[in-house]
Design a protein around this nucleic acid. Structure first.
Lengths: 339, 339
DNA sequence: CTGTTAGCGCGTTCAT
DNA sequence: ATGAACGCGCTAACAG
């Protein structure tokens, strides 16, 4: 079989391109990574040689030599729940545009699994790490601190961030939802949550605030993570077995959709017979179910700011928007029910 | 400030661990990667030294030296749609357990974006690549072929796979749904899809099959990807502006949920006034909305088989379950409506 | 603007 | 069972 010019039995190296282009290997490297340092006509010769040979730079070698991997790791509890999807999308878009790629790790809401993943991932010498949440094992924090790379904790706040934090206060969500609903005159509350740390904090904070206003013993159903439609149905079923709330507050939008489904199958009119409140990002249920109130978080904005903060650091700058290493992106309560 | 024993101003290397353990660097490498080749007492010395120094192996250097990156790349259209989440979860779990990590790439349903990502990702010298779908640019196929690494195309089938394929026939889904619904006596159909290649193929195949049975001019609404609840609402709204179908077939479960929401807001009883059919994986809507029929795909199984196929190849074996490089995981129609 | 030298941190290969 | 020499493919630092 005749070999074509782009056959690649043994992988093409920088030196092969240099030979074809008639320049030194270093010039090829520069033409590819810092084109502003070479004359445009030699750059052209190099690029022609790259195309002719089908050269693909070996970033393992490049990373080893330069101590820059152009890799960012993202650790999430799960991707089953879509709550982080806008964030991840925006983050990856921002990073990709600057030539960075993303290592994904799934922690399953377990800090010990996160610890294992962090150790494995640090072996890749990522240029930065993004963690969902601000609760980690001591070992995780220590390793991350020693790694001396930018770390962004997202979707939460913290008094002592490892490095940078971009998120909002889940306690404040709970408090504001409680006050909002009390102001609307609700008296009998029910809370349904999955067993995820931030969701639980939102719900507990809400329950505490209700207690401060005289509403004690608010019924509270907790289901195993991750949040699914089925968990929402199950949560409402259990709740209605013994209670008769006017409004159900859910730890996430997916859960709220499950509650809506269960309510529908029982012939309940939402919000007349039962009001429902969810929590999620902008692309989710709030704009679809008119009867559903929701706390909305702009997940894409978190991702965008995270990418910007990391890229600023990679460029040796400090993101000016991140005063004190911390940025509160806020949230808003969208009220759709009319009870 | 006094330095503790685990300070890591300059990163700890293999040679540092060797010095502390009183052995040669090579012995440390073996103790870590092939423990069966060293005596257990020297292995212990090494492990103690690793802990004392806080050593984290540099996988860039290791990968360069061994030509094994222990990295697998996954390319998906998006993570907004949860349809792939079970697959990704199962795949990552299987891979992680064997020390592999995952690079994530989002193609946004664009083959040219996929091409760009493939090129960038091949620079990391991944040990394997997983692609959602079997439709790619010529350049993508050529690069992947030349890379000489295991490639798994998932969630679809193909007559000429790049390497391995694990999925099912989307045309067959359409045909079987059509026959199923015809057998149930439906006469007036409506189809709502998002603009995603596989979803469109399912729907077109269904429409063709309906035409073969005399049902021509089936109304067909196509909305921009990704599939969201809102798109589903919009799809039904447009459909009902001019048509009066008995059943709406949707290209995905998320879309179907949007259709359900719109139906509910119009006071339509599902399935009495309007039946709805979705498509998705096992964790989704079918088990929650009793009135919703669904084509169910076991996404977790696809992920599990994909991990197994890759790991078999890494070990130099050929996965026996993958006869001819191709595995059809099938799907099933879950019928919930009672019209 | 371009080339040369040296070495990133590790695993392969061979020797012991 | 352990060690020494070498090179993986690339870029930093310096020289010209």
């Amino acid at each position: 079989m005749p070999a074509t010019s782009t056959d690649q039995v043994e992988s093409v190296r920088l030196i092969d391109v240099a030979r074809v282009a008639g320049v030194a290997p270093m010039t090829v490297s520069r033409a590819l990574n810092r084109p502003e340092l070479v004359r445009s006509d030699t750059a052209k010769k190099v690029l022609d040689a790259v195309r002719a040979t089908g050269y693909v730079p070996n970033m393992l070698a490049g990373g080893l030599a330069s101590s820059k991997s152009r890799l960012v790791a993202i650790l999430l509890p799960t991707i089953a729940n879509s709550i982080f999807s806008d964030t991840v999308q925006a983050l990856m878009d921002g990073l990709n545009a600057s030539g960075y790629q993303t290592l994904l790790g799934l922690t399953g809401y377990s800090t010990s699994q996160e610890e294992t993943l962090v150790e494995a991932i640090l072996g890749r010498r990522p240029d930065g790490i993004v963690l969902a949440g601000t609760s980690h094992t001591e070992a995780t924090v220590e390793r991350l601190t020693k790694a001396k790379i930018p770390v962004v904790e997202i979707w939460d706040l913290s008094d002592k961030p490892i490095d940078m934090v971009i998120g909002f206060s889940h306690e404040q969500v709970g408090v504001e939802v409680a006050r909002h609903l009390l102001a609307k005159g609700y008296d009998r509350f029910g809370v349904v949550s999955v067993d995820d740390p931030r969701g639980l904090r939102r719900c507990r904070s809400l329950i505490d605030e209700l207690a401060d206003h005289g509403k004690t013993s608010v019924p509270f159903e907790v289901l195993p993570a991750p949040a699914t439609l089925r968990a929402g149905r199950e949560g409402l079923s259990r709740m209605l077995a013994t209670e008769c709330p006017q409004i159900i507050v859910c730890s996430s939008d997916t859960l709220a959709q499950g509650v809506l489904a269960e309510a529908a199958s029982r012939g309940l009119n939402v919000p007349r017979d039962l009001a429902v409140m969810g929590f999620g990002d902008l692309s989710s249920a709030a704009h679809v179910y008119p009867a559903l109130s929701t706390v909305e978080v702009d997940g894409a904005s978190i991702g965008k700011h995270t990418a910007a903060a990391l890229l600023a650091r990679f460029a040796g700058r400090r993101d000016t928007a991140l005063a004190g290493g911390r940025m509160d992106t806020g949230f808003s309560i969208i009220d759709r029910e009319s009870a």
